[in-house]
Write a protein that binds this DNA or RNA. Structure first.
Lengths: 335, 335
DNA sequence: CTGAAAGCGCTTACAG
DNA sequence: CTGAAAGCGCTTACAG
């Protein structure tokens, strides 16, 4: 049962002062090579590790990053977190995870505790409710406490912070153009997130691409039953040739409507959605999707935060980094 | 730009000592009501929060729990984490997340840093590689440092720690009995995890239930192509009437084989798998599954750990808590 | 080259 | 009822 050994104990064993031990372990040039070696040897023998809490107190930092995630069940966010963890690891930082469950109330609580100094910086994807209610006071509070903030994924928010996300508009612009280039004329869009920022951007990309011609149809609703009805109409009455879905819910619903209506994908209907690789690959047929590279978003978020923490970013000047999306074609867009 | 105010500053403003302020804020009976009120008022005005790092140093604890997750993309673990976070919240504890990516090497690194005192206790689901190589030294190291450990989910490991998981054997025993009660005779089992503990337990449950009669078939392999071939054989040649899948991979593969072979689920083949609700519901047809209640596993893991941390558990005596599974019937087991 | 001292921000036993 | 002092485990400017 080895309990952790402290600097003080080490010093006593070596008959030197605590300062000498500390300096020796930090390769200070003040210390004689002979002493340094003695110290290091004993430290190694006892497997000495500085107490991180004490080091942090001394350095007035915590060595941790707070990550606020709206919904961890969403594979996208799970993979973002994975990217963050891997990157933080490289810097010897710890990730403290907070889950807001898309709730403004919970997000406020989290930000409140964050202001008391648990973390050096915060990475946040703002909850849906927060966006809807347009209430960002708690985030401004964080900024007032001089806790660096990086907003990831849901970045079309007017906060003076660094941001990192994907080009939502372009992704759907490109996808729409792709179908048109293949000769399709009647294109549909389905969305359960038309009321939030990223949804609007994706829809905008679709609309812009349709300006040059073709028939555009849209099915949008936050209510599952209503959305399903509208999608069914697009598929059975309007007979769109392809459907672009802005989110997981609408994509899965489109697949289900096709299944129920015996519409053959991809023969009668092409389908592409903003859904995760994890599910997309396993559907029958497999569903083409827009890859957002969540791990990269995660690792980049940590990088941007660390730049800020290390004073490598210009104060008052904020970075907005965009990770390019990729279309991944599986069975549902086979021509 | 309010920077955090300290006890010392508060004391100066009030013309009292630091100790008085501290005691007043902790409702110490030593302090006069009048002073207490003055202190609290000013503290509130300045929104004073004790620096958690300092408090932790003083108390020789960290207020954080380390969680080691093998694979965060697995929705099961994502939801376990969610349950842990919610429960930790209630105790004012922070969750530090580490992702081992099913790698023994990574797991060792994580445990190594954990021994230096970042956390008060650790919740871990052991990686697949660790189980295969049967190498638990790094976990014993944690125990030697007297860092309480709770093993969750993958619990059939001979370590002297508290454990929390589900009754894997019973879950598949029950599922098999269910099919037999419905009059099915030819039952198949598919597994990509027959080499790890939980896989073996599930298979054992199946086998036990089949002892009382019926034809049992098995398709097991860690190689996707081989597993697929074997499942196809079960479905097309052996014509099993129901297939029980021990894991995500085999379940998805079974669904795909049926799709490719035009075997109608559930008419010609019933299917049940150990897969997450998140995917199960969205497949076409939707896939019946065994609900493991991941959030409960998570919250219980935190509870068990805290009991240990608070000295409410008997030293040397370990708890093994089992959360009951539930069969959730969706389209794939419709009779 | 080594060590005593101050200090990070707190808590608490002890003295007054 | 209040405050000075010690201490949690470390780091670092300063003195010797």
């Amino acid at each position: 049962m080895k309990s952790k050994i402290t600097l003080k104990e080490l010093a006593k064993l070596l008959n030197v002062s605590v300062s000498t031990v500390s300096k020796a372990l930090h390769d200070s040039p003040e210390i004689s090579p002979k002493t340094a070696e003695r110290v290091k040897e004993l430290a190694k023998l006892h497997n000495y590790r500085p107490n991180p809490v004490a080091v942090n107190l001394k350095k007035s930092k915590t060595g941790t990053i707070g990550v606020v995630i709206p919904n961890i069940s969403n594979n996208f966010f799970a993979r973002v977190l994975s990217g963050m963890e891997a990157q933080a690891q490289k810097h010897g930082q710890q990730i403290i995870t907070y889950i807001s469950n898309e709730s403004l109330e919970r997000e406020k609580q989290i930000c409140d505790m964050l202001t008391s100094g648990f973390v050096d910086g915060v990475l946040i994807a703002v909850s849906e409710e927060t966006q809807k209610k347009n209430d960002y006071e708690h985030l401004y509070a964080l900024l007032e406490y001089e806790i660096p903030l990086v907003i990831y994924d849901r970045i079309n928010i007017g906060l003076p912070t660094d941001k990192i996300g994907v080009d939502d508009e372009k992704s759907f612009y490109d996808a729409t153009k792709f179908f048109k280039a293949k000769g399709l004329n009647k294109l549909g869009l389905a969305s359960a997130i038309h009321h939030v920022g990223i949804g609007q951007l994706r829809i905008k990309g679709f609309e812009k691409a349709m300006e040059s011609g073709g028939e555009a149809y849209k099915a949008t609703s936050t209510k599952p039953a209503e959305l399903k009805r509208k999608i069914r109409e697009l598929v059975t009455s309007d007979r769109v040739e392809a459907l672009l879905c802005t989110d997981f819910e609408s994509a899965i619903m489109a697949a289900r409507v096709a299944y129920e209506e015996n519409v053959d994908i991809p023969r009668d209907l092409k389908l592409i959605g903003y859904i995760g690789k994890d599910v997309a690959e396993f559907l029958t047929p497999s569903l083409s999707y827009i890859e957002q590279h969540p791990q990269e978003i995660g690792s980049n978020a940590v990088e941007v935060l660390n730049k800020r923490l290390n004073g490598e970013s210009q104060p008052g000047k904020f970075e907005e980094k965009i990770i390019a999306t990729t279309m991944v074609h599986l069975e549902s867009t086979r021509f």
